[in-house]
């Protein structure tokens, strides 16, 4: 019985994240449009886009190799697995021990590695510029998030996300300076990783400042649909990750009943909506940075994360 429930909850989680991810993106776009006093596309537009793209033919560049065709599936699988391992409505996931937080981040790193390779496969100037900038951003964002994880893991005494969520939800933790620093660092990294303003603009094309869009320029049809779905999943993953570490309340523990799961799911929707709204609000109130301001922005995140970890090292109670 318990095994069945665990499998069900893990399976539900896997498909929930997949189904919700386009909705979150649609929601953020809608809120952004409303904040700019535009009507905005309908909430369900991302689903329609995905379905339309899936049905279309793939137009592959003449020079594209087999790797180019495999990479969308690799990126999608890596991101999906990572997103299924971040607790959303319930904290005790069946397979949560498969990969701890460090491994989840490394899994996303694998996805990015292949995405950067895809940008270089066709041999165009735009693909190269995208990949080159992506690895520059990653070279700061990845250490920043790793060190943030160090700080959080030292407070929680574990790198297992379910454990961290349980610990953070308990009353032992209180307000910690290092947690505050880690939160700021994590938000900065999340903005960079999801190619949001001020680091990258998800809505532009044909602009030399773009990063993510430049890498996927040569993709079309079902491949592009998968890559778009992966970036939507990634956004959902980061919002869930921040929610799971910093506002874990309400997530159903492993051995709870159906009400707890429903309650957890409702609360999770609320958290996602709040996260999406804040993201939209932040994006509308700030301008995109020059490319060479990004290292400073991310460097700040790295330093904050380092400071959080350092405080944890020198003093147990901070």
């Amino acid at each position: 019985m318990t095994t069945l429930r665990d499998i069900l909850s893990q399976g539900a989680q896997m498909f929930l994240v997949l189904l919700l991810a386009p909705l979150l993106t649609g929601f953020v776009r809608k809120v952004k449009a409303r904040l700019l006093r535009r009507r905005g596309p309908p909430l369900l537009q991302p689903y329609r886009d995905l379905i339309r793209l899936m049905r279309k033919d793939v137009v592959l560049a003449e020079n594209a190799s087999w790797l180019f065709r495999v990479i969308p599936y690799l990126i999608f699988a890596g991101t999906w697995v990572a997103a299924s391992l971040v607790p959303t409505f319930g904290s005790g996931l069946l397979f949560s021990w498969t990969a701890d937080l460090i491994a989840i981040i490394a899994l996303l790193g694998s996805a990015r590695f292949f995405q950067a390779l895809a940008g270089m496969d066709v041999g165009t100037a735009f693909g190269g510029i995208g990949s080159s900038r992506e690895v520059m951003i990653a070279s700061l964002a990845e250490p920043a998030i790793l060190i943030t994880v160090f700080g959080v893991a030292m407070i929680a005494g574990s790198t297992q996300l379910s454990r961290i969520a349980e610990f953070m939800g308990s009353s032992e933790v209180g307000l910690r300076v290092s947690l505050g620093l880690a939160l700021v660092a994590l938000i900065i990294v999340a903005l960079a990783e999801n190619a949001r303003i001020p680091v990258d603009n998800p809505a532009t094309h044909l602009e030399l400042t773009m990063v993510h869009e430049a890498m996927v320029l040569e993709y079309s049809g079902r491949h592009l649909a998968l890559i778009d779905l992966s970036s939507e999943l990634k956004l959902l993953l980061y919002v869930s990750l921040i929610a799971c570490i910093f506002v874990p309340w309400g997530a159903a523990p492993a051995d709870s009943g159906i009400q707890a799961f429903v309650f957890g799911a409702a609360l999770y929707f609320g958290k996602l909506a709040a996260g999406g709204f804040l993201l939209a609000l932040f994006e509308t109130s700030i301008a995109k940075m020059r490319v060479f301001r990004i290292p400073e922005f991310l460097g700040a995140a790295l330093m904050l994360a380092l400071l959080a970890t350092l405080l944890r090292f020198v003093s147990g109670s901070l």
């Binding site: 209180g174 307000l175 910690r176 300076v177 505050g180 405080l311 901070l318």
Partner: peptide, 8 residues
């Protein structure tokens, strides 16, 4: 904790 947080 709040005192700490403010100082931090």
């Amino acid at each position: 904790d709040i005192a700490h947080l403010l100082a931090g």
